[in-house]
């Protein structure tokens, strides 16, 4: 499942997409995020599955702002959450 967390406003679209089919629930993304944007939550979509990472409800409205320090201007380095994910399950739309 592709879970999209975020919003669209006048300046653009800001979504963090987590592909739970790729995710191995290792929790590394949650650990490396310096701003506490991610958390592990029960997977309501698949009752058999382990807890999955999700963007916290508090941060869903402002990831453009919260994630800004991890977004280098040169676009060459990768934000830590994406870097930490060995399964390539995390994407940022901006």
């Amino acid at each position: 499942m592709k879970a999209n967390y975020g919003y669209k406003d006048g300046s653009g679209e800001y979504f963090i997409t987590i592909d739970t089919d790729k995710c191995n629930c290792c929790e590394e993304c949650v650990k490396v995020c310096p701003a506490g944007v991610l958390e592990m939550v029960p997977n309501d979509f698949d009752i058999e599955a382990d807890d999955m990472p999700a963007v916290t409800e508090k941060e869903r409205w402002k990831i453009k702002y919260t994630c800004a320090p991890c977004k280098p201007v040169d676009k060459e380095s990768t934000p830590p959450c994406i870097e930490a994910c060995k399964e390539d399950a995390i994407e940022h739309s901006w």
Partner: peptide, 12 residues
């Protein structure tokens, strides 16, 4: 009826 993708707006 199993979710494969979703997107939500509850900001506005």
């Amino acid at each position: 009826g199993k979710v494969t993708a979703f997107l939500m707006n509850d900001k506005c």
